[in-house]
């Protein structure tokens, strides 16, 4: 899809720019374009520094191509910008090093993060990449909360993790695919061990 034909998503639908507010345009790696207010961008340290360094005027924002965010897909970026718009103007929490942090998940955030776990992990990745401190806090908390009262088998399903056996099998398969001799060497080693040989060499 070309940039010109790409749909433009107004994340801050409630606040149509009546007054003179600057709206930046960003593009995800799957060519989806987003318009995000200047104030919302301040929630992301990475984007805030980027737009400051670019020094765009209102005309530049409209005339120049959208700022590309290569690493994040449209689905994830939409969630990120929705979060930023909702929390624009809020103070960015400072990490005081306390553990565990007392983090409350607001209703809006809880609804926003009511998504499949794979997408939630992508959201965390994106929050980390764009350095959005509070989004990272709430999303990490959400992931941690998901573990409460779960057995190891349930945790495996929730966090999309392999069991030790599956992990071993996958590693072996990968190793074999890389080096077909590996299996033979391993079998030879096992055989020698069975015969009572002390050293493989």
């Amino acid at each position: 899809m070309s940039v010109e034909n790409a749909p433009v998503v107004d994340v801050d639908e409630a606040a149509i720019p009546v007054e003179k507010k600057m709206y930046y345009r960003f593009e995800s790696n799957d060519k989806k374009e987003f318009r995000v207010s200047e104030l919302a961008i301040q929630q992301s340290e990475t984007l805030n520094r980027l737009v400051e360094a670019m020094g765009y005027t209102s005309e530049d924002v409209e005339n120049k191509p959208a700022i590309a965010i290569e690493n994040i897909d449209g689905k994830t970026l939409k969630l990120v910008f929705q979060w930023c718009e909702h929390h624009k103007g809020e103070a960015i929490p400072v990490d005081d090093g306390s553990v565990p942090k007392i983090v409350e998940i607001p209703e809006f955030d809880a609804k926003l993060m009511d998504i499949d776990n794979g997408l939630l992990f992508k959201l965390i990745w994106a929050a980390d990449y764009l350095n959005i401190v509070q989004l990272l806090n709430v999303s990490c908390k959400k992931v941690a909360n998901m573990a409460q009262g779960k057995t190891p088998a349930q945790l495996r399903r929730v966090y999309l993790l392999p069991s030790d056996e599956e992990d071993e099998a996958a590693k072996r398969a990968a190793q074999e695919a890389q080096d077909p001799r590996a299996r033979e060497v391993e079998e030879e080693f096992e055989e020698r061990k069975r015969q009572g040989g002390n050293s493989f060499f």
Binding site: N29, G118, F121, W125, V143, Y159, L160
Partner: peptide, 13 residues
């Protein structure tokens, strides 16, 4: 990161 985000990610990623 881009590779990760292109596929299904788990906690370990």
């Amino acid at each position: 990161l881009s590779k990760i985000l292109a596929q299904k990610v788990s906690l370990l990623d």
